Simulated assay, not measured.
Amino acid sequence: MPDTLIEVRALHAGYKGHAVIEDINLSLGANEVLCLIGHNGAGKSTLLKCMFGLLPKMQGEVRLGGGLTLNEVALVPEGKGVFPSLTVRENFDLGLDAAKIQAAERGARIDWVLKVLPQIREFLHRRAGTLSGGQAQMVSIGRALLKRPRVLIMDEPSIGLAPKLFQDLLGPIRALQQAEGLTILLVEQNVREALKVSDRVAVMKQGRIVWRGTPSELNNDRLMELY
């Protein structure tokens, strides 16, 4: 049984006193990819913000286990998540600043990310605002990886991407996860592609988790019932 790195218990959270998510129970284990799916407005992003400490909870708790700290958790936000007026390298420098990486280690961190996502080399010195949607999403993920996190949370990385581009993006991330024991929470609406790289699945609907299981258990009929 893998260590539980993040455990959510009876969590309620929302905005201005109004609960958006209610009674959420969810665990994220070491060395796994958990896919969280649901329609827009289901409460997925609210749950992520609360797990990441960006939104106060109304009730319940979020526990970190296995010696995990929030500094070892990286979030890839919904949308492009880059500074368009800066070059890709300058975006990376900001990521290194935020992670408080020492100057002597910065070159090695960037080299490591470029091995994981080698296509970034082609546009490392271009302004991020000139990149395609797929390139910008790659930079956003690369910047999150600079801190060498134990847990990577990705919020809707397929937004604005063609299915083939999304496949090309997920491939190296899954390979990295398997090679280094990275734990990933993948929040997605592109269910078909997300399930291909996931170990477990949770389905959210109207602020609650309504189903948990494995990708093989979530056939089309079951998915239609849940949605």
Rank of each mutant, 00 (worst) to 15 (best):
Asp3Arg: 09
Thr4Lys: 10
Ile6Pro: 15
Leu11Met: 02
Tyr15Ser: 04
Asn25Met: 13
Ala30Asp: 02
Asn31Met: 05
Glu32Asp: 13
Glu32Trp: 06
Cys35Ser: 14
Gly38Cys: 11
Gly41Asp: 11
Gly43Asp: 11
Thr46Ala: 03
Met51Asp: 09
Phe52Asn: 12
Gly53Leu: 14
Leu54Thr: 10
Gln59Leu: 15
Glu61Ser: 15
Gly65Ile: 08
Gly67Pro: 07
Leu68Tyr: 08
Leu70Phe: 13
Pro77Thr: 08
Gly79Ala: 12
Lys80His: 13
Gly81Cys: 13
Phe83Ser: 07
Pro84Glu: 04
Thr87Trp: 12
Val88Asp: 03
Val88Thr: 11
Glu90Ile: 10
Leu96Asn: 03
Ala98Trp: 13
Lys100Gly: 00
Lys100Asp: 07
Lys100Leu: 11
Arg106Ile: 06
Arg109Lys: 11
Asp111Gln: 14
Glu122Trp: 01
Phe123Asn: 01
Phe123Ser: 03
Arg127Ser: 08
Arg127Lys: 14
Gly129Asp: 04
Thr130Leu: 09
Leu131Ser: 01
Ser132Leu: 00
Ser140Asp: 02
Leu145Gly: 09
Leu146Val: 06
Leu146Pro: 01
Pro149Val: 00
Val151His: 00
Leu152Gln: 00
Leu152Thr: 05
Asp155Gly: 10
Pro157Tyr: 02
Ser158Val: 09
Leu161Phe: 01
Leu161Gly: 00
Ala162Pro: 00
Gln167Asn: 12
Gly171Thr: 13
Leu182Lys: 06
Thr183Ala: 14
Val187Arg: 02
Val191Cys: 12
Gly207Tyr: 03
Val210Pro: 15
Arg212Asp: 11
Arg212Trp: 03
Thr214Gly: 09
Leu218Gln: 04
Asp221Met: 02
Leu223Phe: 08
Tyr227Ser: 10
